[in-house]
């Protein structure tokens, strides 16, 4: 009796002491976690701040109108029109999209609707692994395998050409497209499929006329994300597509993308404070703005998709 009384009295004292120190610790831990999360905000605004600040120096020397409309890019001769670089990036992105989007969507559809769960269990991680191959490796592959092959079909193909870059970038974003499409497709509620089957639809009709339209905004979002990845892709296009800023629609010619320009100049040790150094940030800002807008757009689409089905 006495013993139990003792333990009963002792415990609450210990507990409350522990509680008191805990509360302080709890708040502290919460705060530390918050601070860590805020680093992402800091990084984002840091990147925007740096890009804008250095670009302002650039636009003090070159008018934004010239930058956005002039058709010649030759920093050595004070010609600063971004169109040739943007055109190069567009050509690569377009080519990569033509290859990766249809193939990726159909592969995703296969994975989500047709593959048995055993096949899916092997293929999905395989795709994830493949998405991790370093892009330099793809660049080297483009130069030594794709370009010679193109040359054997089109003899006028240059040693550096946009087509080989576009092809490897397409291959590179393919796993991303199929994986994201698969996510979007398998998120379509089962009841929709069952309803269609109940009405006597075939598997093809269910897939193509029910599931794909239902997942359309998710599919579009995955397309946009993949294309934005293609726009930001650097090493493969630097190696494969060359360093000739040129406004052309001919994929067999050498071009230069925005990313490739940044690598070329930054590696050449442009002295800090020179116009060349500031061009890096003006081009970087353009690149960042484009990918950010695409990301915002994709998120909007995904959100709308979620609202419909959740």
């Amino acid at each position: 009796m006495a013993m139990t009384g003792q333990t009963v009295r002792d415990r609450p004292v210990e507990l409350s002491r522990a509680k008191g120190s805990n509360r302080l610790g709890e708040t502290g831990i919460r705060l530390v976690c918050l601070l860590c999360a805020l680093i992402s905000v800091l990084t984002t605004f840091g990147i925007i701040f740096i890009l804008v600040r250095e670009s302002i120096h650039f636009f003090g020397k070159v008018s934004p109108v010239e930058f956005l409309t002039s058709k010649e890019w030759a920093p050595g001769n004070d010609k600063f029109g971004i169109l040739p670089l943007a055109g190069g990036t567009f050509l690569i992105t377009l080519g990569a999209g033509i290859i990766a989007l249809p193939l990726g969507l159909l592969s995703g559809l296969y994975l989500s609707e047709y593959a048995s769960s055993r096949v899916r269990k092997i293929l999905k991680p395989a795709l994830e692994i493949l998405a991790g191959i370093p892009t330099v490796v793809y660049g080297f592959f483009a130069l030594t395998v794709v370009t010679p092959y193109l040359k054997s079909i089109f003899p006028q193909t240059g040693a550096f050409n946009a087509a080989s870059g576009a092809i490897v970038v397409g291959i590179m974003i393919l796993p991303l497209v199929s994986s994201l499409c698969e996510d979007a497709l398998s998120a379509v509620p089962k009841s929709l499929r069952e309803g269609a089957y109940g009405l006597g639809a075939t598997k093809f009709e269910v897939s193509a006329k029910i599931v794909v339209p239902a997942a359309l905004s998710g599919i579009m979002a995955s397309f946009i994300l993949a294309l934005s990845r293609a726009i930001g892709e650097t090493m493969a296009v630097t190696l494969a597509a060359g360093a000739t800023p040129k406004l052309t629609a001919n994929p067999l010619e050498s071009i230069q993308t925005m990313t490739a320009y940044i690598v070329q100049i930054a590696k050449g040790d442009a002295p800090a404070g020179s116009t060349q150094y500031y061009t890096l940030f003006a081009v970087g800002l353009t690149l960042f703005a484009v990918t950010m807008l695409m990301n915002v757009f994709a998120l909007r689409l995904v959100k709308r998709f979620r609202q419909v089905y959740n």
Partner: peptide, 11 residues
């Protein structure tokens, strides 16, 4: 997460 790696390089 969607920012190209070269932008981090510039930063």
């Amino acid at each position: 997460a969607a920012t190209p790696s070269i932008i981090y390089g510039l930063f």
